[in-house]
């Protein structure tokens, strides 16, 4: 039987959660911003070893200013989290440290990846020099637009989910 794992993307609105999923699942990107309300669920099979694939059930949640406002039922049975922020908008990472502390306290054994998205809009040196201002060192800097690090992010998390 194929293994299925539920992962959830969290973060403020407009940080590019839906775009990351669309890039990963459909290899496409649009600059048109369409607000996500509630939850969209998509599925993608990911190869994690030469003869091993898993199904990622990816929950794309509506963005919130406050992570604690996330509807509790959405989080039931989650195997992994991806917390996304926008590297260009301080409002999306000013509470990053608190949000990550909250998640790691509430879901101590659930793998979590912290992602700074829209990395294509800033220079690499900006990211390097400003790592400290994010409050938490991100696991990945991604660009849903160019696809940079997107597959790597999901594959890395998928591998951790079956450990």
């Amino acid at each position: 039987m194929k293994v299925s794992k539920k992962i959830i993307l969290l973060g403020h609105f407009g940080v590019g959660k839906s775009s990351l999923i669309r890039q990963f699942v459909e290899n496409s990107f649009t600059t048109d911003y369409k607000v996500t309300i509630g939850v969209h669920i998509l599925k993608k099979e990911v190869q994690i070893a030469p003869n091993e694939t898993i199904s990622l059930i990816i929950w794309d949640l509506e963005g919130y200013d406050d992570i604690k406002k996330t509807r509790a039922s959405y989080l039931l049975g989650t195997h992994g989290f991806i917390y996304v922020f926008d590297v260009t908008r301080p409002a999306t990472f000013q509470n990053l440290e608190d949000d990550i502390t909250y998640l790691t306290n509430q879901y101590a054994n659930t793998p979590l990846k912290v992602v700074g998205n829209k990395a294509d809009l800033v220079t690499k040196s900006y990211l390097k020099e400003n790592k400290a201002i994010f409050g938490v060192t991100p696991d990945f800097f991604t660009s849903a637009k160019t696809g940079d690090n997107v597959a790597d992010l999901f594959t890395t998390l998928a591998k951790e989910l079956v450990k």
């Binding site: 299925s4 539920k6 059930i57 509807r71």
Partner: peptide, 26 residues
């Protein structure tokens, strides 16, 4: 219908009373 229900798989054989509500699912 939708992969949404795969997330509930662990409750399919539950022997307890459960009433779980989800809002705004696409």
């Amino acid at each position: 219908i939708n992969p949404f229900f795969e997330g509930l798989a662990s409750y399919f054989d539950s022997k307890e009373d459960n009433d779980i509500k989800f809002t705004c699912v696409h």
